[in-house]
Amino acid sequence: MKGIFLKNWIVMWGGLRFNLVLMTIVGLIFAVVGQMNTFGSIFSGIFLCSMVMGMMEYNERSKWELYSDALPVGRKGTVKGFYLFSISYFAAFSVLAILACVLFTAFMPMYFDPAALILTPIMTIFVPTLIFALTLPVLFKFGYKVFRVIFLVLLGFFGGIGGFFLGFLVDDEHSLASSVLSQIWSVDIFSLLPWIIAVAAAVLALYFLSMLLSSKLYKTVER
């Protein structure tokens, strides 16, 4: 497990560093935009998934998967390593996102909103975690090509939700989005905290279960 975890980081940092830095900057911009508009935070989360997928693309082209059967890592180790790597990547990004947002609101105090500040790291970790929890078993059972299709479909779905929330930017008192959001924002975010923590824990649990499922599925895959 440790081997694959490190391997993925080495490929990201050693091989794709330029892309990584670039995408991180873009992702952080979206996170910062999220201070003003929730859609930004969600989108940065989706962005993270794309970065990991870029790396998967390299794996796919290199026939690493067949080779890894001959390595002392095991199918379970490969799955665990990959899940661990992904969530560590999301977490690392979230830390950067918080810093970026704090800096941003320090320079632009008019955008300071504790709710948004709390929501940002939550979205940047848990949106991609949730997406991967739902889609990674497809990757391990059916391969990268099928996974990519499913992922894009889900992207559309989340994009749709993002668009839903985007609606509130339009100055239209009667849009559904604005009424939902005004409901949320009228509530004290800190009283919602236990719910938020519960959802976060649920997402983590789902991620863990997804890992177990992927392990089981991957063991049965024949090349």
Binding site: K2, G3, I4, L6, K7, I10, V11, G14, G15, L16, M55, Y58, N59, R61, S62, K63, W64, L66, Y67, L71, P72, V73
Partner: peptide, 18 residues
């Protein structure tokens, strides 16, 4: 079977941990 974007030192680091 190595990803195209890596160099020899990356391969070394990868295989060392495996």
């Amino acid at each position: 079977c190595f990803p195209e974007c890596v160099r020899l030192k990356d391969i070394n680091a990868m295989m060392k941990s495996i």
